[in-house]
């Protein structure tokens, strides 16, 4: 069972990596590419900490084999900020609304929120809660996360950032 050489397109960068076919995308992102913003929590697709965007859709990278992501577009939390000095509106809103406490769920939460807002730019509070239903947070009680997503939705709708 030889390693397979694959091309991962992460945040606009291309990486050629030789991976064991049974390795998950979460493991390869963290251990081979050293993109440790993607977290591994439950490692069984329940907690959402490993959420990344694959071809624009939120997926659990702990249940995605790295070889299956060959030549597909991956966005991780490291790829969201437009520059080192500027945060993405979702990141900014999370900071401003105190939606980050321990921070472990935050990367997955923000990517799940990004997927939600791309499909539903003006969600109701209930739609936000359902859209983040695949992401667990044990610190905030969720209210501040919901407020942050509402604020980011308004910010994005105001056209300041795409």
């Amino acid at each position: 069972m030889a390693k397979q050489t694959i091309e991962l397109r992460v945040n606009g960068d291309r990486y050629e990596v030789a991976v064991d076919p049974w390795r998950t995308l979460a493991e390869v992102l963290r251990e081979e590419l050293r993109l440790t913003g993607t977290k591994i929590g439950c490692n069984q697709g329940d907690c959402g900490a490993c959420t990344v965007l694959l071809d624009g859709r939120s997926v659990s990278s702990c249940l995605t084999l790295a070889v299956e992501a060959h030549q597909r577009e991956i966005t991780t939390i490291e790829g969201l900020a437009p520059s080192p000095d500027h945060l993405h509106p979702l990141q900014q809103a999370f900071v401003q609304h105190g939606a980050v406490q321990c921070g472990f769920c935050t990367p997955g939460m923000i990517l799940a929120a990004k997927h939600l807002l791309e499909n539903n730019p003006q969600p109701t509070e209930q739609e936000i809660r359902r859209g983040l239903g695949g992401n667990l947070c044990r610190c905030t009680g969720y209210n501040k996360i919901v407020e942050a997503v509402q604020a980011a939705a308004q910010e994005l709708a105001a056209g300041k950032e795409g």
Binding site: G45, D46, G48, T51, R57, S58, V59, S60, L63, T64, A112, H115, L116, G131, G133, G134, N135
Partner: peptide, 9 residues
């Protein structure tokens, strides 16, 4: 059913 991530997969 399930979560948005699981429904996407």
């Amino acid at each position: 059913m399930a979560t948005p991530q699981i429904r996407n997969m």
